[in-house]
Amino acid sequence: MRRARLGFWLFLAPVLAWLVLLIVLPHLDLLVMSLRSGSGSRASWTLQNYANFFGEPIYWLTFVRTAMYSVITTAITFLLAMPVAFYIAKVARVRLQGFLLTLLLLPFWVSELVRIYGWMILLRESGVVNFALLKLGLADAPVEMLYNDATMIMGLVYTSMLFMVVPLVSAVESLDDSLIEAAHDLGAGRAAIWWRIILPHCKPGITSGAIVVFMLCLGNYLTPNLMGGKNSLWFTEQIYNQFIASFNWNQGAAFGFLLLALSSAIIWIGLKITGQKLGEVAS
């Protein structure tokens, strides 16, 4: 028995070290830092960093924009991923299923930067799409398709698609075909089958997909930075500016904490509405 306890401590020690030193303490430090001004011995407690956020429209407008666009992106991702997931799980021939699923996963093993770069050389003024449009006579002069909000949202949808499709495929797969057949035999139309049978069954998959996609959008830096225009500032860019450009770590910490609070709140609400626990969604 004593030896078994030793084993327990050997498992516990590295896990505790990881979680306390790299997760708990840094985020407490983030909170403390956001409530202070200056550094070293001249530091004092203050709420000024948060007051700056609410007092300066550019800050909170960026925050609201980031949240709104993340919600929109999550919704579009769901609308695009649902039919694809349903096709793979229920419509495609069984022999094709595994192949399609592998094909679906493949692009997401590649770095996000490479995927964004691919879109940039497709869409920019001297890009491949413009070249094709000019050759086909569909445009008289090259159109700049990068650096606007619509393209940025498309990029965000593209980069986070996988995290919606995978949980949806496994959710749809676990639905018993006979339920759909029964509904069909009893005269239900397509809309009714989707609304009353498929979507309620997929709720856990939809929740976990939506949570992950939302969080990834909120915390994304590359896509808004490289595909968004001058006016599509993302909140992570504000954090970066405070830390690296202005070197105002207290202000940056306050922004970081606000972003963390927002993402935690939305995830908590999402779990509450659908009555699930984080542990269930994660597995």
Binding site: I23, P26, H27, D29, L30, I211, V212, M215, L216, L218, G219, Y221, T236, I239, Y240, F243, G252, A253, G256, L259, L260, S263, S264, I267, L278, A282
Partner: peptide, 11 residues
Amino acid sequence: LVIPGVILGIS
């Protein structure tokens, strides 16, 4: 899983 990567970096 639910902490944005940027926040992990700055903290």
